[in-house]
Computed example of a mutant assay.
Amino acid sequence: MLELFKKLPQIIPEAYALGDISVKPFKNILVCGMGGSGFPGYLLKDLIDTPVEIAQSYTIPKYVSKDTLAFIISYSGNTEETINMLRRTRKKTKNIVLITSDGKLAKEKEKKVLVPTGMQPRDAIPYLFFPMWFILKQKGIPEVISAVKQINIKEAKSLAAKIKNKIPAVYASYQHKAIAMRWKTQFNEDAKILAISNVYPEMDHNEIESDFKKVFTILLRDQKDHPEIRKEMDLTQRRMHAHNILLKGKSRLAKTFYGIYFGDLTAYYLALLLKKDPYRYEFIEKLKAKLKNG
């Protein structure tokens, strides 16, 4: 994790350049992918105005059509659900881009982005997300690199120590839903603990009634959040004994990746404190094997 983090200023522009692919005009976007390979779709949904749908099953939405641009993402290239979604997508649109490192997807006929092998899918986020950003003619890479360089590793390590032996509950504004989700899934996979994520203002209509004594609450704050959401966070943080993390960066894209990697580092150090191997996935692999063998 640390080696990857240190190389991000080189990895991010390299990943962005891989998206030098032309696509046909489109009215909406479909992103198909599971786990770490599907997560870039949530980032895209948060960051652009074009309608984005994320499919994470064996099927795709019925309204997918010739006006849909589809990104089919599987880092391994062999994910069963994703291959099934590709087959169904072909029947609805020819405007398809595959993003993979190897496997069955790498051998398919559609336009594709081939990314480096040898990584965990969730570590490969720059390679799975930034090619889409290039294809969609989006900018802002220097701002992302600048924001990531502002992350203080010691702060992440200190936060991990505070979370130890508690259930982390991570909240953000609705526009940063994907960042909160990423924190949750990293705590799940790295530290092997249960975690919660939700967004404002929705959480103030249900979760605010919960007992927060056994959880460690984290608020991901953005100074450009809607004024009413900032007010709600101010009013509820005392009840939740919340720890505030300010998302730094000059753009939403930059703030997003600041938040992602601050969370990734925190989860990594929490795993070490709990004496867990952040790259051992015992139950995920057992489930995959059982499904494959029937």
Results as ranks from 00 to 15, higher is better:
Lys213Gly: 08
Leu69Pro: 03
Lys162Cys: 09
Tyr279Ala: 09
Thr185Asp: 01
His226Asn: 11
Ser146Arg: 08
Gly19Pro: 13
Thr185Arg: 10
Ser65Tyr: 09
Leu30Glu: 01
Phe212Ala: 02
Asn78Asp: 11
Asp67His: 11
Thr59Tyr: 15
Asn78Cys: 01
Ala271His: 11
Ala156Val: 01
Leu8Phe: 02
Lys162Glu: 12
Ile29Phe: 04
Lys224Trp: 04
Tyr268Val: 13
Ser251Glu: 10
Met181Ile: 12
Ser173Ile: 04
Leu114Glu: 07
Ala289Met: 13
Thr68Pro: 03
Ile125Ser: 00
Ile193Cys: 02
Lys213Tyr: 14
Leu4Cys: 04
Asp102Leu: 03
Leu47Glu: 04
Met119Thr: 05
Met1Glu: 07
Leu30Pro: 00
Gln138Glu: 12
Lys224Arg: 07
Phe283Val: 05
His226Ile: 00
Lys149Phe: 07
Thr236Trp: 04
Gln237Val: 07
Gln138Asp: 04
Lys286His: 07
Leu246Arg: 13
Met119Asp: 02
Tyr269Met: 10
Lys157Pro: 00
Cys32Ile: 08
Arg87Lys: 14
Gln138Tyr: 04
Gly33Ser: 02
Ile96Ala: 08
Leu44Thr: 00
Gly140Lys: 05
Thr93Phe: 08
Met203Ser: 06
Tyr127Glu: 03
Ile193Met: 13
Ala161Asn: 12
Asp46Thr: 14
Lys157Gln: 15
Lys137Gln: 10
Ser251Cys: 03
Ser197Pro: 08
Ala55Met: 09
Ala289Phe: 10
Pro168Tyr: 07
Glu80Val: 14
Ala289Ile: 12
His176Lys: 07
Lys192Met: 01
Phe134Cys: 14
Ser22Asn: 15
Lys192Tyr: 03
Phe257Arg: 10
Met119Lys: 14
Lys213Glu: 15
Ile145Cys: 03
Lys162Pro: 02
Met132Asp: 01
Leu69Ser: 04
Glu53Val: 14
Ile60Cys: 12
Pro61Met: 08
Glu232Lys: 13
Asn95Leu: 01
Leu159Tyr: 01
Thr68Arg: 09
Ile167Cys: 00
Asn95Gly: 01
Arg239Trp: 02
Leu291Ala: 14
Ile125Val: 05
Ser101Met: 03
Pro278Thr: 04
Thr50Lys: 08
Ile196Arg: 02
Ala289Glu: 13
Glu80Tyr: 10
Leu265Arg: 09
Leu273Val: 05
Ile284Pro: 05
Ala15Ser: 09
Leu272Thr: 06
Tyr258Ile: 01
Glu209Phe: 09
Lys27Tyr: 03
Thr79Val: 02
Leu219Tyr: 15
Arg88Asn: 10
Ala156His: 00
Tyr75Val: 04
Ala172Val: 05
Pro131Cys: 10
Ser173Trp: 11
Ser74Trp: 09
Glu81Trp: 01
Ala15Thr: 08
Ser76Asp: 10
Lys164Asn: 06
Pro227Trp: 11
Glu202Lys: 07
Leu220Arg: 05
Ile135Phe: 07
Ala172Asn: 00
Leu219His: 09
Ser76Ala: 13
Ile179Asp: 00
Lys231Ala: 15
Ile229Lys: 06
Trp183Tyr: 12
Gln138Gly: 00
